[in-house]
Amino acid sequence: MLKVPYVMTPGPTEVRENVRLARSVRCTNPDLDAKFYDFYRETCKKIGELLKTKNEVRILGGEGMLGLEAACASLTEKGDRVLVIDNGIFGEGFADLVKLYDGEVVFFKGDRREEINLEDLRNFLDKDSNFKYATVVHCDTPSGVLNDLSKICPMLKEKGILTLVDSVSAMGGENLEVDNWKIDIVVGGSQKCISAPPGLSLLSISKDVFAAMENRRSPIKSFYCNLLIWKNYYEEKWFPYTPPISDIIALRTAVDNILADDGVLKRHERIGRSVRKAIIEAGLHLYTRNGYSNTVSVIEVPEGIDEKKLRKYMVDNFNVMIAGSFGYLEGKVLRIGHMGENARENIVVYTLYSLQKALEHFGFKCRCDISQLFLEEIHSL
Rank of each mutant, 00 (worst) to 15 (best):
L334V: 06
I279F: 02
D31R: 01
E303S: 14
H285K: 13
K159R: 15
V296C: 12
Y241H: 14
D261M: 05
N215L: 11
K159V: 03
H379D: 14
I378R: 14
F39I: 04
P219I: 09
E69V: 03
D247N: 13
L176A: 14
V296I: 15
Q191H: 15
V57M: 14
A212L: 05
E69D: 12
D33M: 09
G88P: 05
M65C: 00
V82Y: 05
H338Y: 13
A134P: 08
V186Y: 09
V320P: 02
F374M: 13
V301E: 01
D166I: 04
K127I: 11
H138L: 09
F108V: 13
W230F: 12
Y37P: 07
P244A: 08
I152W: 05
C366I: 01
I271S: 02
D128R: 07
V264K: 09
S206L: 07
S150K: 10
E341R: 09
R267G: 00
M155A: 04
K54A: 14
L162G: 03
E177C: 13
S74G: 11
A211L: 13
L2T: 14
K192V: 11
Y40T: 02
C368P: 01
I245G: 01
K109V: 15
L227H: 04
T295R: 04
I89E: 14
P198Q: 06
G304H: 04
V209Q: 05
T141K: 08
K46M: 15
I248N: 06
E114P: 01
D31W: 03
E63Y: 07
R311C: 12
V4M: 12
S74F: 08
S201F: 04
G363S: 08
S24D: 07
V275K: 01
R311V: 07
I161V: 15
E269I: 01
I47P: 03
L32W: 02
S206W: 01
L381N: 13
K157Y: 03
G48V: 07
P142H: 07
K365H: 09
I322D: 02
T351R: 08
E158I: 00
G110C: 13
S325D: 01
L373P: 02
C72H: 05
D128N: 15
A73D: 05
E330Y: 04
H379C: 11
K52M: 12
V165H: 07
G11C: 09
E42I: 12
V7P: 00
L355N: 02
G11V: 06
E63L: 00
C368L: 12
M321Y: 04
K221T: 00
R26E: 13
L200T: 05
I249M: 06
F362I: 04
E17P: 03
D102I: 00
I271Y: 04
N342W: 05
Y328W: 00
G103A: 07
A282Q: 02
G67Q: 06
V7I: 14
M8Q: 05
N130R: 12
S274L: 08
I378W: 13
L21Q: 11
T43A: 15
T163A: 08
A134Q: 09
R217L: 10
H338T: 08
Y101M: 03
T9K: 06
H285F: 00
F94T: 04
S206I: 02
L118Y: 14
G172S: 12
N215I: 11
K54E: 15
F223I: 09
K99Y: 01
G283H: 02
V187P: 07
N87K: 12
G283R: 01
S143E: 07
G363M: 03
V84W: 06
F326I: 00
G331F: 06
I89D: 10
